[in-house]
Amino acid sequence: MFTSLCNQVFSCSIQDYHVKDDVHQPAANPYDKNSIEHLLYLKNWIDTVQWHLEDIIRDPAIDPVKALEIKRWIDRSNQERTDVVEYIDSYFLEKYKTVQPLPNASINTESPAWAIDRLSILALKIYHMQEEANRADADATHRDACQRKLDVLLVQRQDLGAAIEELLADIAAGRKYMKVYRQMKMYNDPSLNPVLYGARK
């Protein structure tokens, strides 16, 4: 199943990141650049780095200049994340381009890649909740609470995976069709953000 492949690649990315656990380390994507696995690994690597940037920026003692630097890094990361999601959707558009939608075919509330985006975030939640459930320096109450949350996250991943597989099967059979709206993020665009284009006046 495609979602099994996703979970396998996401796990690889997360494990690779945590060897050094450093937001500055470059990604060492092990997959062929023309493969969907390469895009899935890149997607999760961006998510993983951003996860840790979000942790760092919440340090109450962080230097304000450093915090602003990280906030802008997160903004760039959000744009990169969106770009990669669109590349993944392009993969599905190409894969299913010859499918003729049935007369009663419907559109899904989100594209396959945006659902896979949520699967990537879930992989990170599961990894870090597992860490908390096993934390040696935490008390049993904390570990038990985290284990209960982990159990819910694992069910959530199973349910989301099943929904994605059903969506892909429906697209392949013509019961649903893809219609991808390219994201139009305005805050990063100097021509659309009034603070940015106002600064040029």
Rank of each mutant, 00 (worst) to 15 (best):
K71R: 03
M178P: 02
W114N: 13
A138K: 13
K149Q: 15
K33A: 14
D59K: 03
G161Y: 00
I107F: 01
S13T: 04
W114F: 12
K33N: 14
N78M: 05
S11H: 03
D22P: 12
A123Y: 04
N108S: 15
L160P: 14
L102Q: 13
D170Y: 01
D189C: 02
Y127G: 08
K185C: 02
V155I: 10
T109W: 07
Q100A: 13
R58L: 06
M186E: 10
G174Q: 04
R175Y: 02
L192S: 01
I88K: 11
A113W: 01
I74L: 11
I126Y: 04
D137F: 15
T109L: 09
L119W: 11
A133I: 03
N108F: 15
I70A: 08
L124D: 05
F10T: 05
T48G: 11
A162Q: 02
G161S: 08
L53G: 13
Y177A: 03
I56S: 15
R72E: 13
K97E: 15
P64G: 12
K66W: 11
E37L: 01
Q15H: 04
D89E: 08
L153S: 10
V152I: 13
A173E: 05
G174R: 00
Y197A: 00
N134K: 12
R81A: 07
I70G: 06
D83G: 08
T82Q: 08
R118S: 01
E131M: 05
N78F: 02
K43A: 07
D159Q: 12
I126T: 07
S111F: 00
L154N: 10
K176T: 01
W114G: 12
Y41A: 00
T48Q: 11
Q8G: 05
E54A: 05
D139Y: 07
A28Q: 11
Q130L: 01
H128C: 04
G174W: 02
Y96M: 06
G198K: 01
Q50N: 14
